[in-house]
């Protein structure tokens, strides 16, 4: 009523503007700063081998984070991604007997199916995303362990190629991550689905009134998240030439959420920053590498990561108000 009438454009205060800038570009600035720091102070940082290692390590995080960004864009969250990686890894081992393509397809189907389950719980049963995917986190990790009870090694030429080959000097894993990033960016920017998922996260009531198939969109988003997590699981398995459902993808959901939030996608939905998300993943990876290279213990990484995620959410919050 009276209050809503006052929707005149309000000038942003200095502090608000700073926070807004930080939310949007903070991640780029941080990555840049870390890179410069390393160039200056870390021996061998500029060597090609080092870059390769960094990129290979960050690829699975990037892939999982892409799906997470889509889910968070709808004001949801997907805690099941780490477990889906484990399940897809288990599926690879189970179906490797039929050849690598069959095994990979089985893994991807399993990931999509888990996503469909989570999406259905969220969209049709009306369960909060955090609870629905928590149930999947617990159950699917268990399922993966039941299917493949212990670390299982294998040798499969096709999977070795997938995990370790390079094309034009770039590891295949990295190329796949880059292609998927481009695909997701295209999805968000250029397709109906992308526009609609952002609208669902931005204002669900408005989306519904505008005739958007809100429930189908939600299910699709979780299916994509499951699918991408499965891809990451397959790649990790191929690299290791082994499946270890007990530890593969453990705590991946936390890294992915951090990457997405740090990358400027607000937890309140309505916006998806694909490039920001990739930068967020890079930031975590670089941070870890920097600390290790300077002989600082792993414990620092986690504590710094905690501070970063708090700061990112705080910046987003300052902006909303």
């Amino acid at each position: 009523m009276a209050e809503t009438a006052g929707t005149l454009p309000k000038p942003l205060g200095g502090r608000t503007r700073t926070l807004a800038w930080l939310q949007r570009y903070g991640v780029y600035a941080s990555v840049l700063a870390l890179l410069l720091f390393n160039v200056a102070f870390t021996p061998h940082f500029l060597e090609v081998a080092n870059f390769r290692t960094q990129l290979i390590q960050v690829a699975p995080i990037v892939i999982v984070s892409l799906g997470m960004a889509l889910v968070i864009g709808t004001e949801g969250i997907d805690l099941s991604v780490g477990s889906v990686m484990a399940l897809s890894s288990a599926m690879v081992v189970l179906y490797l007997g039929y050849g690598a393509p069959v095994a990979i397809v089985a893994a991807l189907v399993a990931g999509a199916a888990v996503g469909a389950g989570g999406g259905a719980l969220v969209a049709y049963a009306g369960v909060q995303p955090i609870v629905a995917t928590l149930a999947l986190l617990v159950g699917i990790r268990g399922l993966a362990n039941v299917l493949v009870p212990q670390l299982t090694e294998f040798r499969n030429p096709a999977l070795i190629t997938l995990g370790s080959r390079s094309v034009l000097g770039l590891p295949l894993v990295v190329i796949i991550a880059a292609v998927l990033t481009a695909v997701v960016a295209f999805l968000v920017k250029r397709t109906i689905f992308g526009r609609q998922l952002v609208a669902v996260g931005g204002n669900r009531a408005a989306a519904k009134l505008s005739g958007l198939p809100v429930r189908r969109i939600l299910v699709a988003v979780y299916v994509l998240s499951g699918l991408l997590a499965a891809v990451a699981g397959v790649l990790a398995t191929a690299r290791l030439q082994a499946s270890d459902p007990t530890s593969l993808g453990l705590l991946m959901e936390l890294s992915a959420i951090t990457a997405v939030v740090v990358g400027g996608t607000p937890l309140t939905g309505g916006r998806v920053r694909v490039l920001g998300t990739v930068m967020g993943a890079l930031l975590i990876q670089l941070l870890q590498a920097t600390l290790i290279k300077h002989n600082l213990p792993q414990s620092w990484t986690q504590m710094v990561q905690a501070v970063i995620i708090l700061a990112a959410v705080y910046a987003a919050r300052g902006r909303k108000k």
Binding site: G117, L121, V131, A132, L134, A135, L136, L137, V138, G139, I140, R141, G142, L143, N145, V146
Partner: peptide, 9 residues
């Protein structure tokens, strides 16, 4: 874990 996950859902 499978049982408790299913149960939770």
């Amino acid at each position: 874990q499978v049982v408790s996950g299913a149960f939770l859902a």
